[in-house]
Design a binder for these strands. Structure first.
Lengths: 229, 229
DNA sequence: TTTATTAATGTTGATTTTACACTTATAAAT
DNA sequence: ATTTATAAGTGTAAAATCAACATTAATAAA
């Protein structure tokens, strides 16, 4: 019978997370050195298996929390990878998720214990299985996301300069942006609060610090817009 | 141990297909009346279980072929649905795919045997499990796709009028479009061949028939563009 | 006091998008 | 043969958006 449950094959279902962070060096991803076979010692996305009583979103959250100590992180499901031998041990389908986190907030202790490490996108090592492809797809999705939703709240420190925001967008889009045009486009979204405070690290003159206006930011998250940068 | 394969739970993996068609009545989806429990007699997307030695894309193609007799149909993976009790019989994760097919080409015999039926999007019945949500998400994706890839080759008959193409886009986007602006935007894509032949069904004057220029169409499929309608 | 450095700021021309209405071809009706 | 009814086909102008671009301002360090 075409659709009988009993005769259907069961498979392992994994969740792999592409965790993006951002600092002065640019856009980064968190990778882990695998401490078990196969591919022990090689670099990998952080991941784990779905439990029987768990939904995929929760598995992704659990895995992220296990390795970084972070909670309440926005994650988005990306794609299900199902090549037959993608995992040589056993047939495993993996569903990828990506997360955006403030790189300053992670639990350094945990990351160290798990032999995890931040890598700049540009010089990340080769990854096991199909994880390179997962990362590429996550970057494409992130890039798309910038054009329809505000971004930055998740990746920047609470207070940031316009330059930091510009450099974040440049890192994600992987292209140079015109500073004046960028600022006016961002300002037209009306999601920023300009503080009276200045950051004096980067220049003699000092540059104003901003925060995101959380209410307006989240309102924009609900309704797509178009942002051509 | 956090990542041992042996202790991980295995699950059933299903594939459900949202099959879009288009005719003079508008945009439609193909649904099937389930002939097995649970929810026997209710309407459902067509679907099936992933086999152990099969990748998801192939499962989607197989399922589509089983119910429609069609081959070589473009399908795109959408999303993995994993609510614990989404299928009351057994824990099943379902990966959805959508397909665009020429409604004239399906195998009517097969569809009849499977108690499948085309429904206009607007008056489709309630579906089992989370299939309504799958359909909504598929429509959103299809809408997005129209803005970055040409569309129509898959959904229209070989020869079609400008009006048919316009109405296809209107059905997908669910909004009225300005005829003159639409035509000039489509023409700027340079994917159509205007024939000398006219369709005399729809008006006294008759309207020119077009075909897609397959080479240019497929070239455009490879490289995204932006089409604001 | 000078110098060096990054921050801040607006305008203009080019391009794209939107809104909008009349003429044409033909079949059907008389 | 003429009239009538119907959808097809076609272009322009105003508005909005985008892209390119250079000077002044504030401050710390020398």
């Amino acid at each position: 019978m075409l659709n009988s449950y009993s005769s259907a094959d069961k498979v392992l279902l994994a969740v792999d997370c592409i965790i993006f962070g951002f600092d002065h060096e640019g856009l980064k991803i968190l990778l882990i050195k695998r401490d078990f076979e196969p591919e022990k010692g090689k670099w990998s996305l952080i991941g784990g298996f779905l439990k029987r009583d768990e939904v995929l979103d929760d598995a992704a959250i659990r895995i992220l929390n296990t390795y970084t100590g972070l909670n309440d992180i926005y994650m988005e499901q990306l794609y299900a990878y199902s090549e037959i031998d993608r995992d040589p041990v056993e047939r495993t389908i993996s569903v990828s998720y990506y997360a955006l986190i403030n790189i300053e907030n992670h639990n350094a202790e945990l990351i160290k214990n798990y032999h995890a490490q931040w890598f700049s996108i540009a010089d990340a090592p080769n990854l096991i299985f199909d994880h390179n492809e997962m990362v590429e797809q996550a970057i494409r999705r992130l890039r798309y996301r910038t054009s329809i939703k505000p971004i930055g709240f998740e990746l920047l420190p609470e207070k940031f300069t316009m330059r930091q925001l510009l450099e974040l967008y440049e890192a994600i889009l992987s292209k140079e942006l015109d500073k004046r045009n960028f600022i006016s486009k961002i300002n037209s979204l009306e999601i920023l609060n300009k503080l009276d405070e200045k950051d004096m690290q980067s220049s003699r003159k000092g540059s104003y610090l901003y925060t995101f206006n959380k209410e307006k930011y989240e309102e924009k998250l609900l309704n797509d817009f178009v942002l051509n940068l």
